[in-house]
Design a protein around this nucleic acid. Sequence first.
DNA 1: TCTGGATGTTCAT
DNA 2: TGAACCTCCAGAG
Length: 284
Amino acid sequence: MPEGHVTHRLAAGMTERFAGGPVRSTSPQGRFADEAAELDGHRFRSAQAYGKNLFVHIGDRSVHVHLGLLGKLTFAEPDPDTDLRPVVGQIRWRLENDRHYADLRGPQACQLIDAAGITAVTERLGPDPLREDADPDAGWAVVHPSATPIGLLLMDQRVAAGVGNIFRAEVLYRHRIDPTMAGRLLRRAEWDAIWTDLVGLMHDAVVRGRIDTVRPEHDPVATGRAPRVDRHGGEVYVYRRADQPCLVCGTPVRTKEFGGRNLFWCPRCQRTSRRRVPVGSSAR
DNA sequence: TCTGGATGTTCAT
DNA sequence: TGAACCTCCAGAG
């Protein structure tokens, strides 16, 4: 489930379980064996998330993890009687201490990285709504002059690091914005509202461990329509609800490949008729 | 048992 | 713009 909230949860989970003590580091699958051996026995210092990137600091080394579309990092505790820690599936990296172990499977990136490398990664990223130091102006600077549709811009990690396909679809729905509208037609006030909403939704997702975007006033009980709990575990308005009725207006939700990913939106709720705004105007 | 899809990104053309 | 890569699981047959 790798949107930004997942990475932040994992960073917190790793820090909680391992920080301060030595860790055993192995690569049961073998593809990270040499690097894992370099970390073995050293003290786990911290884990930090930036967007969908996870940086794990052990001893004087750091590891860069990116889960990609398929990667998973899971926590488990050994059997209390036998201390059994079964190896299930392809485990790229296992980190463990006496009480816990963490297994990383199928990551897009898992590699040792130095300070310059970390800087290079984070400099490619825009503001992360889950970080205190996030500056939404940096995202606006990408969106504001762009002729690219807002539905594509929101997947650009320079606009908002950590936003993925679910948050893109849901936040645009919540603000009734047509995903095909050019970024430069978005008003500053709308961007500010989107940003504020992302901050709230993503923080909420970190706490809950799932993405819930359906607001109480549109609760299925109130609308009389069945709730949609997606396979990712959360309640959503449009994500993966193609051809099903919009929870608010009943119009069938549409889907289309957009930016190489399936976008979902309500063609009725998300109609934005707007005249072209000249690039450079404040558009407030 | 097999196939296709999936919350992502990078690289080659 | 499309292919490649990584792994798991739901659904079809």
